[in-house]
């Protein structure tokens, strides 16, 4: 536990400042993509989490993710799928305790993709890292490679999946930034909606390339940083006020 905490906060002290908001090209506010159009690098999706607004004991984002993606458990917490989990970390230097949601960090340089033998683990051109379950062979190399333990393996035969979130035994899965919603024009993820609905508003999803997007505004008025910046993974999930 100490190790994990240390691990997560290691670079908190080295707070400074290698993170760069992906350069601003986009001229327009984000317009809905026609369903037939391929995604492009005009968008770069990300999440900002203001940990000062995240409430200890609240699991609304986790519950919403489970609901959105049909992540029903088997009462086996060791192996049941988790796309988001709540973690609590303590700073070694200040003893400050922070509680926050941790999901796939959507690395720009994702180790999960580096190690995948089939190319199933891939980064979409708009920055979303996901598993192509059609070609995943369930080797779980990516789970070992991910520094954030973001991925889960489905151990059991599933039925009653949600139409918008196909998933099944023998494949690895993780947060895909609600890719189906986003491709259908949603401006929010399920976890963000749930957090907003409770009035906490700790989670902000959006387009990092658009300097007027809600995530860019949230980032500007905070002090965002990446977890384990020392690994140079250039994640698209940012945390403030840790």
């Amino acid at each position: 536990m100490i190790n994990r905490r240390k691990f997560l906060v290691k670079s908190a002290t080295a707070l400074a400042i290698t993170f760069v908001v992906p350069s601003i090209i986009s001229n327009k506010a984000h317009a809905k993509k026609p369903l037939a159009e391929k995604v492009s690098d005009k968008q770069s999706w990300g999440i900002h989490i203001d940990t000062s607004k995240c409430i200890d004991g609240c699991t609304a984002c986790v519950d919403a993710c489970n609901e959105e993606n049909g992540l029903t458990g088997f009462g086996r917490p060791e192996t049941d799928s988790q796309w988001i989990r709540k973690v609590t970390v303590k700073s070694n230097t200040t003893d400050k305790i922070t509680t926050m949601p941790l999901m796939c960090q959507h690395c720009e340089n994702p180790p999960c993709c580096d190690v995948c033998p089939t190319g199933a683990s891939f980064k979409r051109i708009d920055g979303i890292v996901m598993v192509n379950q059609h070609t995943c062979i369930g080797c779980r190399y990516c789970m070992m490679a991910c520094p954030f333990k973001a991925r889960s393996f489905v151990h059991e035969t599933l039925t009653q999946q949600n139409t918008n979130a196909p998933r099944g035994k023998g494949c690895v899965e993780s947060c895909n930034l609600c890719v189906n919603r986003i491709d259908h024009g949603s401006e929010t993820t399920a976890c963000e909606d749930a957090c907003n609905n409770l009035g906490h508003s700790a989670i902000t999803f959006g387009d990092l390339n658009d300097k007027n997007s809600k995530i860019s505004l949230a980032m500007n008025s905070n002090n965002p940083r990446r977890l384990r910046n020392d690994l140079n993974l250039d994640q698209k999930v940012f945390y403030s006020n840790i």
Partner: peptide, 21 residues
């Protein structure tokens, strides 16, 4: 359609399995 959808985010309905169902 499956490759277009998963890799390129194309979400047209015509050849989508969800629509077949």
């Amino acid at each position: 359609q499956r490759d277009e959808t998963v890799i390129d985010g194309v979400r047209t309905k015509q050849h989508s399995l969800a629509n077949c169902v």
